[in-house]
Design a protein around this nucleic acid. Structure first.
Lengths: 193, 193, 193, 193
DNA sequence: CATGAATGAGTATTCATTCAT
DNA sequence: AATGAATGAATACTCATTCAT
């Protein structure tokens, strides 16, 4: 009953931040939403900023966990890439809204401060990039893929994944391509015809 | 030199909005940056919101102009798509920072108000989509492209363009694929091998 | 066509002042209502305050004119008092809304400045008082009235007149006694039974 | 001494509102007068308007209390009316300046909003009216008064009371009739000669 | 006469944060 | 662990007034 309040605060804040943005969510709103008084926020956290930081860091850990639990022992490298894409096309469906916060723009107020937010976004891109790169290199080595410059292909696949993720997060359904056709497309681009 | 204070205001505001975000840019900052007093903002505009709206609407007009001035009489449909992609990979390079504002997330404060911001972003996606679709259909008709479902291909190309644009706007250079390899990639995906 | 604008300003201001109060009427509103630009107000008047002063002074002159044109050669003194009461029970019916301004509370902003407003209200009370007193004294002399202390009766009649005026001005119709019964009442109070 | 800052605010505001008017009293002034910072006003109240509303509502409650504590078991009905008049001729003498606020014109800004202010003034008139009417009817029944139409007499007495109150509140001493002569006057009007 | 442009001094209100308990 | 009360520093916006033309 006592420990929960800290979690309540985080949950309330995550909901508000992701639905209204960091700036438009006030500490009072967070407190009310968490059925808690304002000073308690300051008992558990240094301030509004730390609440935000905590949320995205926890969300990022969960994200990393999900990346790491992607199947490692697939027959083809393409399957690995496919599962990576699939993960990003369905992110947040079963989870909290916190993912939105990692991926959306960092609150401008925090950007200038070299805030964790930037770091996390940077790292997220790197994780995805190197995941893709590894697959491509392995696939090339095996002769699975039509040999393409790995760097370029990595960036292009990264772009696609980023955008699918963005559209998912922003709920822009009418512009979200369906999974099947995305897979076909990638297959055509990567595998020898 | 002193006559166009209204323009000075718009310029100052565009700079601030695009670098710090709408919420973090105060009317006082805008006034100072424009070397003008605050009430003048309210003489020329209804308020902060109208300044923002004016900027993105003007920027959108310029964007539409650029789309319309893409070459129409190319030999192949692919060339048209290529020029569309190229436009988005280089947007804002010679122009004002205003483009950033159209494409980035609308200020959360305004989203709820059915603000012009949302409309413009919607329209922008539709313009690009239908441009791509037209090219694809024409190309398919001519037998230029390997026949693929037009709808799916449209959304995938839209995703790519969006992301190139986003990376350009956010100046995420290290994740921006280079133009040449993007073109190669698209060619492989669209043209018969 | 040219001279009128000054009058237009006064008219517009009088309307606004009497309907919304002095403080809540802005110079911009006055200018717009008068179909004139703001600086013209300052060409014709020293400022908002002078506009107000002009209005109430003109309205007061008109008021004095009406008092002076009350019938002087009546058979009885009571008739004179009756016509005075009648005047105040119907004030503003055929005239401009300016009367409201003389009689309502002066704008607090101006009170502190020993503004004309106060003077005028003071004078108005004095005019009515001495009109009543004269009638009472004459009536007493003639034996028309039951001899009552003139000072006290004056103040009581003044109170009644003030309140009828106030209710008229504030359009509190449900609390306005009708003319006939007021006359009866006064007759009973003044004339010997 | 420091606990009741909320009361300090109400007191300071009541003083300022009644001496300078609602519009001319700024939240900063109120805060300073109450030896408090501005945001505290907003901690205890929703805003300037709520401060005003609170004041007049409390003052009205006190007014109603005073009306209800007028002697009920007098020998004559006239005595009741006399005590009602007396109450209004001396209002505010021992109490706070808040009474002024109920009776004076509502701030124009608030009138348009169907503010409590209007309601209260309406109710006040109704309370006084029905008090008078009850006395008159009882007095007529007993044969105490010379039978006059009750409705008309009610409105005339209401007018007198209103005006005495107004003059008291506005401190227009030179136009305030003295109590003794008012009573004589009413007696003559109501009682059979 | 007339006005477009411009401003100094406010003005109610908000917000993250802190202090005493 | 928790809170009621309090505040410094903004923050968008307003208004009477003036200046150059």
């Amino acid at each position: 009953m006592a420990k929960n309040k800290k979690q309540d605060i985080l949950k309330a804040a995550a909901n508000l931040f992701s639905s209204q943005g960091y700036n438009n969510s006030t500490t009072l709103q967070i407190a009310k939403e968490a059925r808690v008084t304002e000073p308690l926020l300051y008992y558990h956290f240094q301030g509004k900023e730390e609440i935000f930081t905590t949320i995205i860091q926890e969300a990022f850990q969960e994200y990393v966990r999900q990346i790491h639990s992607l199947p490692g022992n697939t027959k083809t490298e393409f399957e690995k890439i496919a599962s990576l894409i699939r993960l990003h096309m369905h992110i947040g469906e079963t989870d909290s809204p916190d993912f939105k916060l990692i991926m959306s723009n960092c609150p401008s107020k925090l950007v200038s401060k070299k805030h964790a937010c930037r770091d996390i976004q940077q790292k997220q891109q790197e994780i995805v990039s190197s995941y893709i790169r590894d697959c491509l290199e392995a696939g090339n080595a095996k002769g699975e893929f039509e040999a393409q410059p790995v760097d370029h292909m990595t960036l292009i696949l990264l772009s696609l994944i980023n955008e699918f993720l963005y559209m998912k997060i922003m709920s822009k359904k009418q512009f979200q391509p369906d999974e099947q056709s995305v897979m076909e497309f990638c297959k055509r681009s990567l595998l020898p015809s």
